[in-house]
Design a protein around this nucleic acid. Structure first.
Lengths: 223, 223
DNA sequence: TCGGAACATCTTGTCAACAATCTCGTTGAT
DNA sequence: ATCAACGAGATTGTTGACAAGATGTTCCGA
């Protein structure tokens, strides 16, 4: 860390750092992001920070209002629901394709993930479960070979980090979602496209449900 | 038009101008976009052009490679198919919602569009038909109230302009798509969510089919 | 005490010049 | 004739300074 991270390198670095800070809760929605502060904090130039903020704005993670700077965008429950519905539509597509064209290796990895998930829930290993969950979704998208859908889903997930961690915390949540995940795995490895789509839809409908319930119990996010 | 269009104004202006130029065929895939040339052509500064290019890159319309500048991105047929499949997934979602919650005004406008489309095909009024087609898709999204899906669909359509115009040119195309459009309208106005989703899926499956056929007849786009 | 006008400060937007890199045509050797 | 090395010109990347707008503070009058 001798030299300043400048230009393109700094741009990616700052963007990643902010995404990370959001995940870990160091940044909260509504918080102002002052270019010069960030530049000093991360050892870059204002230019690099500026471009990083543009990138994050394109991902709908921050909101830039002219002459007033950038702030972390707050995502309403209603918007989180819509995002999840879009995710559902796109992941159904991927799962359908994956059921039809996944390689034998991919099906094997899916089965392995299923077994590991059972184990993780039995052990109460929530971090491991969460990682497996993520890998499962990735693998379905990858096996579906839908590059375009993958990009869309990435964008969709950007603003959701805040909600995801609220959801994962709910007690009993892993036990509830486990059978849904296993159903997805069974359908894809069983080469049944329609069942795969239905399983994904059922899982994400449940996530929507959980979002709505969590909205009632949690105070509205501050702006 | 006395003064230079500077800053944010120029940025939006240049981005729009490039999108327009792409639609009208003045720019072709692979073409280099030199910052200084564009700045002079549109009467702006290099800075504004630079930012406009970043925006277009975020929309996947241009491709920026470091130190080598921006060029119009070429979209392969395979990618166009994937884009259309994603569109299908998202528009099915919107149509389902629209069937359930469209206002009476919106249903009335849909019926009107249907009638106008019949007329346009009967008259051979292809420009009018194309405009009605666009309005139909917009209206379904709007009636569905899916703001998130709308944004996603906008992004999706950016790189497709080139293919869209190739498709619309095919003789007999309007006559072929008319019944599909009418089926969508009937399902939405008839408040039948599943039929609406099926109708949208059928329409876009046909578009995928057309894309594949057109790929066989048209030489591969130059890079 | 409250409202608001004038001011000081902070922050973002813009530009022009400079630096770094790439492209392409030329030259010279094999 | 082919190829590689070279160099001039073209093009993008980066920086620092300045301009312009927003925010917050102080102070005065009612």
């Amino acid at each position: 860390m001798t030299d300043k991270l400048t230009g393109a390198a700094g741009r990616a670095y700052v963007a990643d750092a902010i995404r990370q800070a959001l995940r870990s809760g160091d940044l909260v929605p509504g918080q102002r992001l002052v270019e010069l502060d960030l530049a000093e904090a991360y050892g870059t130039t204002r230019g690099a920070v500026r471009e990083a903020l543009q990138d994050l704005a394109a991902e709908d993670i921050v909101e830039i209002v002219p002459r007033r700077g950038a702030r972390i965008r707050a995502v309403s429950v209603e918007e989180a629901v819509q995002i999840t519905e879009c995710r559902s539509a796109l992941e159904q597509l991927c799962a359908r394709k994956a059921a039809g064209r996944a390689s034998e290796e991919q099906r094997a990895e899916l089965r392995r993930i299923g077994a590991d998930m059972r184990q993780a829930v039995a052990d109460g290993a929530w971090d491991a479960y969460s990682a497996l969950n993520q890998r499962l979704h990735e693998l379905v998208i990858e096996a579906g070979g839908q590059e375009v859908a993958r990009r869309q889903l990435e964008r969709l997930n950007g603003p959701m980090v805040r909600f995801q961690f609220r959801l994962a915390l709910r007690p009993g949540r892993p036990a509830q979602s486990l059978p849904q995940h296993l159903a997805i795995i069974d359908a894809v490895t069983g080469a049944d496209p329609e069942a795969a789509a239905r399983a994904v839809a059922a899982h994400l409908d449940d996530v929507v449900e959980q979002l709505r319930v969590s909205a009632e119990r949690t105070p509205a996010p501050r702006v």
